[in-house]
Write a protein that binds this DNA or RNA. Structure first.
Length: 570
RNA sequence: CGGAGUGUAGCGCAGUCUGGUAGCGCACCUGGUUUGGGACCAGGGGGUCGAAGGUUCGAGUCCUUUCACUCCGACCA
């Protein structure tokens, strides 16, 4: 490609809205163009990188026995109603009607469509296992799209679905996909970690996320300092923390605690560690059919509620904040919420680490009063894991390492779905005994467009991205120092043609610009190597520049091709 | 959804308080000089001032409505 003819328009100005390096460089380098909230055009450079990423994904999946399909983007809403996700998916699902007033959704993911496809063809265990995937545009009407390609509304995802006759067989595929995904991300030069995850709106049991470690990541991941445990904070577990002090002596009683409504104040007032105080977090939960319910979550005062865990244990679609007035309407007293003397129909979930606790402090559901010495074992409570892991907690896997937080960008997610979709959608096959059984399923996603951003977040300097060769838009750029010098122009063109014949992806900067201008563009584009054809061409010498180190190496014109091929492993 | 802010040339912005001929930098076009780290000189093209309504002799500027976008938060009684 000749730069003088290419649709590449770099900019010196940093766009006002961009804060992350990936967003800034993608815009400045004319890889993408912003067209609206969370919507982007891919320009030639961006498209080239996207295609490289796509190709790697496809190559590895096909090698692993997966088959590519391409499903309709616009999907009839009946399928979504059938699976029960029409409501559960919430506002992120874009719904609309066609001219005949039929309802449709823009696919945010394709479980329904894929199950629908497979159930209409696959009737026998002999046709299994099966792993189908597509690399396709998705639309999710995000509450707050941001950070460029990191969180867009329209984005490109690889979504794959596997179908099996048994749970065991599904697990085998799940493990295979874990390996395949690792290979894919390694080929892109990414430093990532596989962590345990929450399965969110997709549903299902076991799930793992592939997190690219980067400070700008939106996800907090919990890692152990002495083993390989890693989990998204939404799913992280821990060894129950030890009590910070010996259990205090308390006999049951009601205490006058005027204006003491926070855990911190109460701890000081009673001279007791928050560990012994039961904190109640009230939330408004939204369920299917628009049902709203106030739910109380009980935790140790030293802990915080993990909302995703909380939402999952009660199977709610969303958790919202509660107004004080809404609590008062139920006869509850904000600031003095407790576990005793609650209205009968209220849903209460206690953290599992409180189970068996027989001596703690809790609100009395009465203004300015708390109970002490409350015995939880005498109350009929549901116990679930709803507390958020903290830094310094003990690792659940090795039981000795300390947990700490780090930030990650989620680029892949694999789920063991089981029969979560096959059952409601009646996707069944005949097993060896002639019995109808729902498919055991797995589902596997890769954020293809997000990968562009993730790769830059991990590979850049202050001048621009530094693309790994495997995903770079071009492998090398030839920079003609001064196009008015006949010899430079001729030699550079000669090199350009030889390289093209050799199958090297090359961009030649043949613009009538000054040397510095071209070097800056080379750095901003992030192409892995440059060959400068300049003033030393008279001595038959050119320079090879490594984008990463920015070091220049002088070599003879004849050697440059071999040297470059060596660097590119060609 | 709550809070804050911004919409003026392709991009980045000034002008709005105090109404009176729509500006600057980058980019773009022409000519010339320059050519190893984002050159310089001269000339030039490009605007429904987000939209609608109102006040006024006169609105980018004041008032009302509306749309879009960006940033922060979604938190713990």
């Amino acid at each position: 490609m000749r730069f003088s003819k290419a649709f590449i328009y770099t900019s010196k100005e940093t766009p006002a809205e961009a804060t992350l390096p990936s967003h800034i460089f993608l815009l400045r380098g004319s890889y993408i163009q912003s067209v609206g909230a969370g919507l982007y055009n891919f320009l030639p450079l961006g498209k080239r990188v996207l295609d490289k990423i796509r190709a790697i994904v496809k190559e590895e999946l096909d090698k692993a026995g997966c088959q590519e399909v391409d499903l309709a983007f616009v999907t009839p809403s009946e399928l979504w109603i059938e699976s029960g996700r029409y409501e559960k998916y919430g506002k992120e699902l874009l719904r609309f009607r066609d001219r005949k007033d039929a309802e449709f959704v823009l696919g945010p993911t394709h479980e329904e469509m894929m199950v629908n496809l497979v159930r209409s063809y696959v009737k026998s265990y002999k046709q299994l296992p099966l792993n189908l995937y597509q690399i396709k545009t998705k639309f999710r009407d995000e509450i707050r799209p941001r950070f460029g390609l990191m969180r867009g509304r329209e984005f490109i995802m690889k979504d794959g679905y596997s179908f099996h006759e048994s749970y065991k067989d599904m697990l085998k595929e799940f493990n295979k996909m874990e390996k395949t995904y690792s290979t894919i991300f390694k080929r892109m030069g990414l430093d990532f970690r596989i962590v345990e995850a929450d399965s969110g709106a997709i549903g299902g049991s076991g799930s793992k996320e592939f997190m690219v470690l980067a400070n700008s990541g939106e996800d907090t991941i919990v890692v152990c300092d002495s083993c390989d445990y890693g989990a998204n904070i939404e799913a992280a577990k821990r060894v129950a923390p030890k009590a910070p002090e010996e259990k205090p002596e308390m006999t049951f009683g009601k205490f006058y605690t005027p204006n003491v409504s926070t855990i911190e104040d109460l701890s000081k007032f009673l001279h007791i560690e928050p560990y012994w105080i039961v904190k109640i977090v009230a939330k408004k939960a939204l369920f299917d059919g628009g049902v709203e319910k106030i739910v109380l979550f009980a935790l140790r005062g030293s802990d915080e509620l993990q909302e995703v865990k909380a939402q999952n244990v009660i199977d709610a679609n969303e958790l919202l904040d509660v107004e004080a007035s809404e609590l008062e309407a139920l006869g509850l007293v904000p600031g003095f919420l407790g576990l005793k003397d609650l209205p009968n129909d209220i849903l209460v979930v206690a953290d599992k680490e409180l189970e068996g606790e027989n001596c703690c402090v809790s609100g009395a559901n009465e203004k300015d009063y708390h109970y002490v010495g409350v015995d939880l074992t005498k109350l009929d409570l549901t116990y679930k894991d709803i507390a958020q892991v903290k830094e310094g907690d003990i690792c659940p896997k090795c039981q000795k390492g300390k947990l700490s937080f780090t930030k990650g960008i989620e680029v892949g997610h694999i789920f063991q779905l089981g029969t979560r979709y096959s059952k409601p959608l009646k996707a069944e096959f005949l097993d060896k005994n002639g019995k109808l059984k729902p498919f055991e399923m797995g589902t596997y996603g890769i954020g293809v467009s997000r990968l562009l951003a993730a790769i830059i977040e991990q590979h850049h300097d202050n001048k621009g991205p530094i693309w790994p060769v495997t995903v770079a838009p071009f492998e090398v750029e030839i920079i003609i120092s001064n196009v008015k010098k006949e010899e430079e122009l001729t030699k550079a063109n000669e090199l350009y043609e030889v390289m093209q014949k050799e199958g090297i992806e090359v961009l030649i900067d043949d613009r009538k610009e000054r040397f510095g201008f071209k070097m800056n563009d080379f750095e901003l584009l992030g192409i892995p190597y440059a060959i400068i054809v300049g003033k030393k061409i008279g001595e038959n010498k050119v320079e090879l520049v490594d984008r990463k180190s920015l070091e220049k190496e002088e070599i003879s014109f004849e050697q440059v091709l071999d040297k470059l091929k060596e660097k590119l492993n060609k």
